[in-house]
């Protein structure tokens, strides 16, 4: 039993790190633009399927695929920004409008994936000799370990961007106070476009990593990841990018520990129950401050 729990903790932390990065991708869009990307998981699946095709066609591994998919998604993000941003901001309730728009986008992506790649599960061969190994008593999946390491690198890069560069500081300033930034002469529109690109580039990373961490991908997995992303950012606080890491870890641990104690069919319940309870009692997230807006 002790070993089961120890393993659950280790795998929970690894998955938690990945979930954290998934959350950051969604949260940065929300923080800067109040855009609720309900197509987050579907974008991830699109990235995963691109990794699959890159592997089939050119023999690229999932890790190499990241380097190709990331720039493509960055450009996709900037294009989506150009297409949607102004219209969404002008609508009566931009948050809900963005939510519904991206729900529409999620349906479009799912149907495109179904048309191009069909509904069968697909998998990408792992680029490691040993797909798993024992570290003392703990059984580790190489794919998840590598994924988690890449996520840590990505989070470090994002933190550097947010805390050490001028543009990154502008991004944080927009998240903190959307009115003050125009006084400082920050071009919110341009920063938003950049953030949209970065957000989708993060999605590209997590999408490719899914093919490393899980044996197979299917089109309907997208919804699951959107749900996870939501849960993670609600736990970490909507609009707080690094809070998502904490949210990811909490959820990763909750998920893997619950799989020790709960029947398999009920484990998806954990995410939703945490989500509902969290929003009802602490909508500002685990670390967030109570907003004074009336």
């Amino acid at each position: 039993m002790f070993e089961l729990i120890l393993m659950a903790i280790v795998s929970g932390v690894l998955m938690g790190i990945i979930y954290g990065l998934i959350g950051i991708g969604m949260n940065i869009l929300y923080g800067v633009m109040r855009i609720v990307n309900f197509a987050h998981g579907e974008f991830m699946m699109l990235g995963a399927y691109l990794a699959f095709t890159l592997n089939r066609a050119f023999g690229l591994s999932s890790l190499q695929a990241i380097l190709v998919v990331m720039p493509v998604f960055f450009i996709l993000g900037v294009m989506l920004h150009a297409l949607f941003y102004n219209r969404i901001q002008q609508s009566e309730d931009p948050e809900i409008a963005s939510f519904l728009t991206f729900f529409g986008v999620s349906l479009v992506i799912t149907s495109l994936i179904l048309m191009i790649w069909k509904a069968d599960p697909r998998s990408v061969p792992l680029p490691f000799e040993k797909v798993s190994f024992f570290l003392g008593p703990v059984f580790l999946s190489t794919g998840r370990l590598v994924s988690a390491l890449i996520c840590v690198l990505a989070v470090a890069a994002i933190s550097f961007f947010l805390y050490r560069t001028y543009t990154g500081k502008a991004v944080r300033a927009i998240i903190e106070n959307r009115d003050a930034v125009s006084i400082l002469g920050i071009d919110v529109h341009r920063v938003s476009a950049l953030v949209f690109g970065i957000g989708l580039a993060i999605v590209a990373i997590t999408g490719c990593l899914v093919t490393l961490s899980f044996p197979a991908i299917t089109p309907v997995l997208g919804q699951t990841y959107t749900n996870i992303a939501f849960l993670v950012i609600v736990l970490g606080g909507l609009g707080s990018p690094l809070g998502s890491m904490l949210g990811g870890l909490v959820y990763g641990l909750a998920e893997s520990l619950s799989s020790v104690f709960l029947p398999l069919a009920l484990s998806p319940l954990v995410a939703f129950v945490i989500l509902v309870v969290m929003v009802m009692i602490r909508p500002q997230g685990l670390l967030g401050k109570v907003s004074t807006r009336i």
Binding site: F84, I88, T101, G104, V105, L107, I109
Partner: peptide, 10 residues
Amino acid sequence: LGVTIIFLIL
């Protein structure tokens, strides 16, 4: 359905 939603909202 997806395209209709996007079109309607925007």
